[in-house]
Amino acid sequence: MYSHNNIFQTELWKGGPSPGQFYNFPGTNYNNSNTGGFTAPDIFGSKRSSSPITTGTSVIGVKFDGGVMIAADNLVSYGSLARYQDVQRVFKINEKTIIGAGGDFADFQSLKRSIDQKMVEDMCYQDDIDMKPKSLYNWLTRILYNRRSRINPLWLEMVVGGMQDGEPFLGHVDLRGRAYEDDVVATGFGKHFALPLVREQISNGEVLTLNQASQVLRKCMEVLYYRDCRAISKYSVAVSTAQGTIVQGPFEVNQNWALATMIKGY
């Protein structure tokens, strides 16, 4: 409603697509017909964001007894260059919802501007109703699927968490719009290194406490720091419980370089 791109229609379905068509979003062409706009190149071909530039690495999310936690380190890389070393990649969206982002950070910042504007509009209703995590999660899947369908993806892998009607919610969305919910999710390298560490703890169907959750995330961040060359030792954690949401950190991972006897300076 208050944005120059026309995604903020409050009237139900106004300006919306016919079923089966796609919603318009910043960066998408306004008048794309169903098939024409997807692949047609310009006269000399077209180059779209087919690879990410400034990137964040793994994000890890876990559910615990009464809430959700999402962790990510504070690095945004430029290729192999550890370019920005003090950037939050986990965010509070509102009192019910948190999000963590990996992938192209510019894409995320642009997307987050839209999310933040949605939250301001939520407040303007003055009804104390906040967007719930599942709604944001579903909205993101549609945005990302829409962009992948135009072969112009938002190069992102995100973890959305929060409290949905008193129950913890945790979901994962990626650049194609592939989405799933689980008790523990991770992106990028975290899928290989961190997921097993967390799954080990909850394999017998046990639910983590808040303390256990933050401990296991700390362990995950430590392992990732050791083995992921695009990770640094500083990380932040977003926590969502029935009491609200908060971003904590930055924290330093525990490091033990005793084995690396020749290496100094850590």
């Binding site: 310009d42 000399f44 071909g45 077209s46 087919s50 072969i151 592939r178």
Partner: peptide, 13 residues
């Protein structure tokens, strides 16, 4: 020429 055909993104998986 067919145009720049840089395509390392696949919409499918």
């Amino acid at each position: 020429v067919p145009g720049a055909q840089h395509q390392d993104f696949s919409p499918y998986e």
